[in-house]
Amino acid sequence: MAISRRKFLQGGALAAAGVALAGKPAEANADAPDLRTKGLQKTTTICPFCSVGCGLIVHTKGGKVVNTEGDPDHPINRGSLCPKGSALFQIANNERRLQKVMYRAPGSDRFEEKSWDWALDRIATLMKDTRDRTFKKTEVNPKDNKTYVVNRTEGMALFGGAGLDNEECYLWTKFARSMGVAQLEHQARL
């Protein structure tokens, strides 16, 4: 995989400057960052990569992320970032990000664009069909030959996700168990 330096430099000058500032208190910097970020909206976030939990500041303008940099007030990273954390800007600004719901029909060799409504209705129907078809109300245990109520959906598995927020994880497990899915697993098993 090759990429030209020219392309590398395009579209990221502000964020690249953020990398250079890492680890220094903003006020002391000769780049006059107050001016650099003047008029921009500012929110804090936590890095989505490893589990150190470094803080970042996200600067936005007109609904677009225009800069990300290490949060100098954050006690763990005190403004510094590693290469991945420094590249957060390119997650928010990236032409390869998925834009639309895509669907691939059985046997097809391509994706086609679909609406959320269509896809979610279809997914809900498939989930219900699989659940209804593979739901196991009871089973006989071979060791004691007794019948036990297990209320389990055998034909569905759910994977993920160590990249979800806690509140999302909670709804994920709540949804899974309500569907009778015992086969719920994620990265912590790997």
Binding site: T43, R97, P106, R122, D165
Partner: peptide, 27 residues
Amino acid sequence: PKQIQTEVFMLPAASSVEKEGSISNSG
């Protein structure tokens, strides 16, 4: 692809700076 009969839905998810919530670090 013709030999594979799986119906596939690829849903576009928001990134961490496009939503609100908590995460727990290793500590």
